[in-house]
Design a protein around this nucleic acid. Structure first.
Length: 568
RNA sequence: CGGGACGUAGCGCAGUUUGGUAGCGCACCUCGCUUGGGACGAGGGGGUCGCAGGUUCGAAUCCUGUCGUCCCGACCA
């Protein structure tokens, strides 16, 4: 490819709408253009990278036993009604009607579709296990599409579904996919971590997220500094912190005027925040009040809480709901709350002694609260959100918190979809059973964005070689010097014959312009043909990531380029 | 959904308060000059000022509506 032909309009200035690095750089590098909120056109450079990622994914899925198919984007409502998700999915689903007023949606995912497909064809355990996948656009009408390709409304995803005859088979399929994902992200040249994740309402055995490490990421993950434990912050289990034992004193109500926050109470009563118990009030989807109680300095993990009370959704509670249950916003504790209210107390709270908690009266708190003695009718479990430095649940070493981008997720589905859709088979004993399923996704377009979030500097993108749109750019310093251009042409043609993805910058631009564009687009290797080449046969190879320049010669540059590429 | 802001040339912005028929930088085209990190000079093309109504002799500017874009709000009550 020649830059005079390449449709990659680079921008010197960043469009005002761009929020994150990947979006800014992709817009500037002429890789993407926005068509509507959260909807983008992929220009040639982006499309090449996407196809490279897809190809890696495809090879690994095939190697793990997957078979590629292509299901429709346009899906009939019937199958979604069978699983109940037509109602549950809500506003996030793009819905439309055909001319006969039949209802359809643009597929946000394909569990229904693939299960419906398989139920008609799979009859016997002899046809199992089966793994089907596709690489295709997905549609989700996000409330707030943001961050360019990171959270779009249309995006490319690889989704694979496994079908097994039993849980043991599912375990095998799951492990295969876990390993395949590890290879995919490794081959893409990304720094990532598989972390234990919550699979919430789905309730399968387990789930892992593959998180590409980047400070700009949206998801928080923790990993152990000693063992190999790693989890998303939603999932991270936490051991109960047992406070130093004290002789329980008698419960006492004290006046604490105006102390609506934990900090104010602690300050007013001259106790540390660790000696206080705070309340966070939620309402579930049925508007029932759910009260969570935490140590003053701890945060609620809403996902854990949601799982604990079996709620589908939680939101902050209205003041009316709190008062109706006998609570007083700002001064709440389980003591004196109306019977029947759902109360969840974090396990750590139960091991506190002589603590401070609200008295459910304005400007009043209890002191000498001993939860084991004073809290009645409460559910106790771990509902704490992990913090940097918390002890690892496996080995106790401090956990480290970091940010990342969720690029892939694997999870077990069990019979959640096969049962309602009636996808069954006959086992060895002629008994009809529902298929045991797993679901495995990779956000392909998001992986591209994540790669940029992880690999960039002030000058632009730094592509890992495996997913770079082109691996090498050949730049003649002065295209008006015929000898330079001829030499550049020769190098370009030679590398092309060696099956290296190479671009020739044949524009009549000044060197600076060409260098800036090459850095912005992020070709892993830049070959410069200049006066030095003509005078002494030196061909410069500059590594984008390190800035390191290697002098190759007219004679050996092909080998040299290959050697360098192999290290990128 | 609630609150806030913005929409003027491909991109970044000024002009709007105080109405008088649109400007700057970059990009683009031509010529000259220049060529190892986004040169310089001269000349040029491009905008129904998001859209639709209204007020006015006259609207980018004032009013109403609408569409779009972006930001903030979602735990310590």
């Amino acid at each position: 490819m020649r830059t005079t032909q390449l449709y990659a309009p680079t921008l010197r200035e960043t469009p005002a709408e761009a929020e994150v690095v990947s979006q800014k750089l992709m817009l500037r590098a002429g890789m993407i253009r926005k068509a509507a909120g959260g909807v983008y056109t992929y220009l040639p450079l982006a499309w090449r990278t996407l196809r490279k990622i897809e190809q890696i994914v495809r090879e690994e899925m095939d190697a793990a036993g997957g078979q590629e198919i292509l299901m429709p984007i346009l899906q009939p409502s019937e199958i979604w009604k069978e699983t109940g998700r037509w109602a549950v999915y809500g506003e996030e689903m793009f819905r439309l009607n055909d001319r006969h007023e039949r209802e359809f949606c643009l597929g946000p995912t394909h569990e229904e579709m693939v299960t419906a497909l398989v139920r008609d064809e799979v009859r016997s355990y002899k046809q199992l296990p089966l793994m089907l996948y596709q690489i295709q656009n997905k549609y989700r009408d996000e409330i707030r599409p943001r961050f360019g390709l990171m959270r779009g409304r249309e995006f490319i995803m690889k989704d694979l579904y496994s079908f097994d005859k039993d849980e043991a088979g599912l375990e095998v399929s799951y492990k295969k996919m876990f390993d395949a994902y590890t290879r995919v992200f490794t081959r893409c040249g990304l720094k990532f971590r598989p972390v234990e994740a919550d699979n919430g309402a789905i309730g399968g055995a387990h789930s892992h997220e593959f998180t590409v490490l980047a400070d700009s990421g949206e998801s928080n993950i923790v990993y152990c500094t000693k063992c190999d434990y790693a989890a998303s912050d939603e999932k991270a289990e936490l051991k109960t912190i047992v406070a130093e034992k004290e002789e329980p004193l008698e419960l006492e109500k004290v006046s604490t005027p105006g102390t609506k926050t934990i900090e104010l109470v602690a300050d007013y009563l001259k106790v540390s925040v660790e000696k206080t118990i705070k309340a966070v009030a939620f309402q579930n989807e049925k508007d029932e009040l759910v009260l969570a109680f935490m140590r003053g300095d701890h945060d609620v993990n809403e996902v854990k809480l949601q799982n604990a009370v079996g709620a589908i959704a939680l939101r902050m509670a209205d003041e009316e709901a709190i008062t109706a249950a006998g609570g007083q916003p700002g001064f709440m504790s389980p003591i004196g709350i109306k019977k029947g209210t759902k109360i969840v107390v974090d396990a750590t709270v139960m091991d506190m002694y002589n603590a401070v908690a609200g008295a459910n009266e304005k400007d009043m708190h209890f002191i000498h609260v001993n939860p084991k003695r004073d809290f009645k009718d409460v559910m106790v479990c771990d509902i704490r959100l992990v913090k940097d430095g918390d002890p690892c649940p496996h080995c106790g070493a401090p956990l480290k918190m970091t940010r990342g981008i969720e690029a892939g997720q694997v999870f077990t589905l069990g019979t959640k979809y096969s049962k309602p859709l009636g996808a069954t088979f006959l086992d060895e004993n002629g008994k009809e059973k529902p298929l045991v399923m797993g679901s495995y996704g990779i956000g392909v377009s998001r992986t591209m964005a994540a790669a940029i979030e992880q690999n960039n500097d002030k000058d632009g993108i730094i592509w890992p070689r495996a997913i770079a749109p082109y691996e090498v750019i050949v730049v003649p310093v002065n295209a008006k010097v015929k000898e330079q251009l001829d030499m550049a042409e020769k190098v370009y043609e030679t590398l092309k014959k060696e099956h290296i993805d190479v671009v020739l910058d044949d524009r009549k631009e000044r060197a600076g312009v060409k260098f800036k564009d090459a850095d912005l687009i992020g070709y892993p290797l830049r070959i410069t043909i200049g006066p030095k080449t003509l005078e002494s046969g030196i061909i410069e190879a500059k590594i984008r990531r390190t800035g390191e320049v290697k002098n190759l010669t007219k004679e050996n540059y092909v080998e040299g380029v290959k050697e360098i590429l192999d290290t990128l």
